[in-house]
């Protein structure tokens, strides 16, 4: 049973019925990515000339592994939210838009999982 009034349910939720959910998560991931992206560039610069053993050793650090996985999560979440809006704005054929949105979400989830599992494999590997 829902005790909320009809007005209470609809108020502030807008046409997408999501309220400020998309907007808020885009800002939340943006704030997270300010330090994380600076850290990521610094990490890439440090490892740019590294051999295999050095790179593996770098990912053995729990701090580096945790920050990399956190960065990957924030990057793919933020990218998906951003490109979703681009698709909403510029694709005007209903089924193409829906197909593109689904493909985008699946691609971001799969690429994020692939990258995160690769990091964890190196971290926990022999």
């Amino acid at each position: 049973m829902n005790l909320r009034s009809s007005l209470g349910i609809v108020r502030g939720l807008g046409s997408a019925k999501n309220g400020t959910h998309h907007w808020w998560l885009q800002r939340l991931t943006a704030v997270a990515l300010v330090p994380l992206s600076i850290w990521l560039v610094a990490a890439i610069v440090c490892l740019s000339g590294a051999d295999y053993a050095t790179a593996v050793q770098w990912f053995k650090s729990p701090i580096n592994a945790a920050l990399m996985v956190a960065a990957l999560f924030a990057i793919f979440y933020h990218a998906q939210l951003g490109v979703q809006v681009v698709f909403e704005d510029y694709i005007h054929t209903g089924w193409v838009k829906m197909t593109a949105q689904i493909a985008l979400k699946f691609a971001c989830i799969l690429l994020g999982l692939l990258a995160a599992i690769a990091v964890l494999k190196v971290t926990f590997g022999a």
Partner: peptide, 18 residues
């Protein structure tokens, strides 16, 4: 949009290391 496509390079590098 470019950075979203560019994440593929980061994924490539991490997958290669693994």
């Amino acid at each position: 949009i470019l950075l979203t496509i560019g994440t593929l390079l980061l994924v490539c590098w991490l997958a290669a290391l693994a």
